[in-house]
């Protein structure tokens, strides 16, 4: 399995001018994208509206077709909104890259298993939903070797990552919070995209 921080670090290293929409563990302030990002101005984290990160990313991808959009999703999140896979594949934005961080648990709520965690076939679901290309990696070496091919593929692309669960057990009120709130990001990213003045 792949360490969460190693995964986001590798993705970030390949981003160039991509917008990244991270959620849940991929957005953890201690070991997710915020801890390694090289271009915060183009990070649009989503911590509310669980399951909707890929919809948010789809909207950006449709609005900005010349720029890659990378969604860093969680398995528990995606299960809340499975129809999004069909919605995304149906619109078929060629610049849309949907990474699934599959750790088989609700890591931010204490590590409870997600339903069906031992029997899901995420690659099969992505193919059946109609993604143009599907990749899967369960170790960092293969992911490091393969990520260029995945990001060179024409979207919509689904990239399944088997990641180690990093369970959050700190009581909610004592957890480390990012100084950059979701609202701040929604104010800053459009300016960075030149979509409206900041």
């Amino acid at each position: 399995m792949i360490n969460n921080t190693d995964a986001v670090k590798l993705i970030d290293s390949k981003r160039t001018d991509s917008v990244i929409v991270p959620t849940m563990n991929a957005n953890n302030v201690g070991f997710g994208l915020p801890s390694v990002t090289s271009n915060q101005d183009l990070d649009l984290p989503l911590s509310g509206a669980m399951g909707k990160a890929s919809n948010l990313g789809l909207g950006i991808a449709l609005a900005q077709p010349d720029r890659k959009v990378m969604v860093l999703d969680g398995d528990g999140s995606l299960l809340m909104n499975l129809g999004t896979m069909v919605t995304s594949a149906n619109k078929a934005p060629t610049n849309f890259y949907h990474f699934l961080f599959n750790n088989k648990v609700y890591a931010v709520t204490g590590g409870q298993p997600i339903p069906g965690s031992d029997c899901q076939d995420w690659e099969g679901m992505a193919k059946a939903a109609g993604y143009a290309a599907v990749f899967s990696y369960d170790n960092l070496e293969d992911f490091t070797t393969g990520i260029d091919e995945a990001l060179a593929a024409t979207g919509p692309v689904f990239i399944h990552l088997s990641v180690e669960p990093q369970v959050e057990n700190t009581p909610v009120q004592f957890r480390q919070r990012s100084p950059r709130t979701v609202k701040m990001a929604f104010d800053e990213v459009p300016a960075a995209l030149g979509a409206r003045s900041g």
């Binding site: 509206a49 919809n55 948010l56 909207g59 950006i60 609005a63 995209l193």
Partner: peptide, 18 residues
């Protein structure tokens, strides 16, 4: 979309993108 809750999120992305 497949379910209505997707619409506000997609709209948010479109709005962010101009």
């Amino acid at each position: 979309v497949c379910r209505e809750g997707e619409t506000m999120a997609i709209a948010a992305g479109l709005w962010v993108g101009g």
